[in-house]
Design a protein around this nucleic acid. Sequence first.
DNA 1: ATGGCTAGCCGTGCTAGA
Length: 259
Amino acid sequence: MRVATWNINSVGARLPRLLEWLESAAPDVLCLQELKSTADAFPYEAVQALGYEVAAHGDGRWNGVAILSRVGLDDVVRGLDGGPDYEGVQEPRAVSATCGPVRVWSVYVPNGREVAHAHYAYKLEWLKALKAAVADDAAGDRPFAVLGDYNVARADTDVWDIKLFEGATHVSALERAAIDELEAGGLAEVMPRALKYDVPFTFWDYRDLGFPKNKGMRIDLVLGNPAFNAAVKDSYVDREARRGKGASDHAPVVVDLEL
DNA sequence: ATGGCTAGCCGTGCTAGA
């Protein structure tokens, strides 16, 4: 089966691209982030017409996550139980579901903005709460993975020029340690293979010709438990989906499993 | 050309993204 994750940067603006990608890549399960729509405003009918069930979790103009599945969609949980508030609100940044033989989480980890910003502390707290929330599934025998936009570049080579990131978020030691901590709960990364370039970046900023110059970052990750990772046959970043007009600033990460 | 940001919102500029 094929499982994928994609930060689509608005499901409304990206709908034609999303439908096209569902048809061409034909994932069995797709985790989406940054819906930028309420759950009610999700384009259910268009997606269902392609054979997918949908679990969406969103509340408006920011954030929002979803899981699309054509192999079953059960035991849906919206939100991150025990997760921190930001400015008094529990933001819609996580949704989980069982899709046939696998259980998946779709996560949109807070950005952090600046190291000194309250959003950064919130990001670290959020990752800590995520570890606690997935502990049982991570340690279980059922194939399990947490897929999404982690907003963390784990290695210096996961950004196009580490010198430009001095003192910035996404590359700081505490953020990287928080991902290591999440893995310590029983998960390990599924590494996508490199395609045109050595590093399989997943994000390229719209500004300053980020994509043509390959000024990218590898921040969309798949963390699986041993049962999930043992079934992995291939993984790649579909950078073709980043090309051209009307693209998201993120590309999908695809994982093929023998399940 | 893979091309100089993009999306959403009561908006006519601002916030957020990373």
